[in-house]
Design a protein around this nucleic acid. Structure first.
Lengths: 146, 146
DNA sequence: TATTGTTATACTCTATAACTATA
DNA sequence: TATAGTTATAGAGTATAACAATA
């Protein structure tokens, strides 16, 4: 295989992959039911449910957004009663975000519902196709760290 | 393998995949340079470049967004001089969207630049990993049609 | 009546710039 | 000075509802 042929393959894969990911992402987004929390809000609740109380900077870094963006997402969640702000006793500049009962319950219910469509799709695949997606997930996660 | 074990695998894949796709999509989005067109606008220009003049409904269906959403994306593109509206001689209700010279040029340049990051990432993968991503792209594209 | 498209309005998500409070 | 966080402001993208024009 010449370098040119290899570049062609990569160019083609690039476009296929970007197109496929955009479509699936938008598909996810349209699954959101009336009155349900948006992607960023849900991801924030899920993160705190998984790892416990987080500071604003921790959440912003993990989501790869600006601190002000996360501050506004947190504002909406606090206003809705899903998150509570509390002072960090060890450092007065820090604010610890924790789930309220409503936040914990909403995260659990919405998470389960959000998985339903993808579950249905995955059920229709062959085991081999699922294995391909599992490997692709690993590769994509690694890539997005750069 | 029992049914329960199979369900566990799918549940795990579900979460991995959704996480991976969200991360890569957001990574794409942050690549956008100052003053460049956004994802939806660029995708619209690219679609017209590939298949020629399109009506609003065609564009909305392909992108899987509401007609009013596409109308507003088109509004921004027409206001910026990237697209031109013209009447369909065969049906007075229809509006045909075509690229202007600026639109064609911008699509070409921005498209090339947008591919750069992903190209770099793909170059670092093994041929086998790239094959996995190519297969995954197909599977994901098929899935998002449902 | 049905289809095509637009506008009004509102919400989510994001960013930059300017700011306060604490270390 | 540096770090943590907030607010003001702006813009992209999306949706629903109400509407006009044409088929």
């Amino acid at each position: 295989m010449t370098d040119d042929a290899k570049d062609d393959t990569i160019e083609q894969l690039n476009q296929q992959l970007r197109f496929a990911i955009g479509r699936v992402y938008r598909r996810f987004r349209t699954l959101r039911a009336e009155g349900e929390l948006g992607e960023a809000a849900m991801a924030t609740l899920t993160r705190i449910r998984k790892v416990g109380a987080q500071t604003l900077t921790e959440l912003a870094d993990e989501a790869r957004v600006a601190p002000s963006s996360m501050s506004q997402t947190v504002n909406r969640l606090v206003a809705g009663g899903y998150l509570a702000r509390s002072a960090d006793p060890a450092d007065g500049r820090r604010v610890l975000l924790t789930l309220t009962d409503l936040g914990r319950h909403t995260e659990s219910v919405t998470h389960a519902r959000g998985l339903a469509w993808l579950d249905g799709q995955l059920q229709t695949l062959t085991p081999r196709e699922r294995a391909v997606l599992a490997q692709a997930s690993d590769i994509l996660s690694r890539m997005s760290e750069n």
